[in-house]
Nucleic acid binder design. Structure first.
Lengths: 192, 192
DNA sequence: GTATATCGATACGCAACCGTATCGAAATCT
DNA sequence: AGATTTCGATACGGTTGCGTATCGATATAC
């Protein structure tokens, strides 16, 4: 572990350009259509420079995907309803980004042939958010806002799915009002 | 328009074998990874025989996709609730088929790079079902079961999305009980 | 029987990528 | 200055798939 780096240092701007080009190629052609040559060409660099960092398309794709990872922050204090709206609205804002939804489309679509990428994307991008949601839902049961016999996993599904399905299939933006409608409808429907 | 076919007739069993092989290749490798050679090999036929019917992968993929088209039948007489459950449950049964959900995953995933296939799949497979659902929802408003200021497009989204999201991302089967929970929760939440 | 079309098998030239190698110029540390 | 590493450019052999062409064998209509 010398830790000392000798020789010419790597250009960090090139890393960013590669990731950016990879995302656009991924959106345009998918995982199966991702080509090292196309990425290098789009990023405006030599193939050698690309292979020095990622030795194949799979690693490159996973690296590009992980650039969407964000630190999730818990909702501020408030009612179960307000916390749910806050969390789901954060999800809405992410999915309303065309690049984000396009990548998620690709990840789910290529999940069969690319299980590693699917697992990575799921674990690092959506799972943390889901944990927070589930915690609030359990609090809802404890507080008597949600009936105790409700299947909370399915409740979470009912609340979050419309965002995903709308952006995955309709390619429509989702409004904050629609988020509130969803949360309020489900909570009212599941009141004890 | 002679309509008279001379020469050796085409073997219809081969058409079926091709479509079947195409679907499996599509599931395994996606639209971008679909190869005429692989389809011919899996179907156990010569490449010539394949090219005689479909001259490129795009036409072949669309043909394979359209084989999932089904004649939709309206729900039997009954309450708005029962008709909704009937329609959504029919949707559930289709999505619970691994081949169906896998193909739908691929279609949405490759929607960007393959808009024709996406449009075909959407128009022929899901749209007819959606029309029936919307009709029942409008009747729900007329009958006073659903509050009149509800956004019916979003209501449909709330009812149908959990099935799609669950099979698209979780890869879990959806039970009929979960369908009933969804319909009942949304209807109760949207009661006037 | 003859014309016509399908089917399997095989081969072909062509293009796109792969992953590697080589070379010289440039940037940084000791 | 000298060692070391990055970067761009280019070339290479190998693989895969494309779309077409050419066979001979086979099945049907006229």
């Amino acid at each position: 572990m010398t830790g000392v780096k000798r020789g010419r240092p790597r250009d960090e701007a090139i890393d960013a350009a590669i990731i950016d080009a990879t995302i656009e190629e991924l959106i345009a052609h998918g995982f199966a259509g991702l080509s090292m040559e196309a990425v290098a060409a789009r990023a405006g660099i030599a193939k050698t420079t690309l292979y020095r960092r990622w030795s194949n398309t799979k690693e490159l794709a996973i690296a590009a995907m992980c650039s969407f990872e964000q630190s999730v922050q818990g909702p501020p204090e408030g009612s179960v309803r307000d916390q749910l709206v806050c969390l789901v609205d954060a999800m809405r804002r992410k999915w309303n980004d065309p690049r984000y939804s396009a990548i998620m489309r690709r990840i789910t679509g290529d999940g069969v042939s690319n299980p590693e990428a699917y697992r990575q994307g799921r674990d690092r991008i959506v799972t943390p958010h889901i944990r927070l949601l589930d915690r609030v839902l359990r609090r809802g049961v404890d507080d008597g806002v949600i009936r105790p016999d409700a299947d909370l996993v399915w409740v979470r599904q009912m609340i979050t799915s419309p965002i995903m399905a709308a952006t995955l299939t309709l390619r429509d933006r989702v409004s904050k009002a629609q988020i509130e409608t969803t949360v309020d409808t489900v909570l009212r429907g599941l009141a004890p």
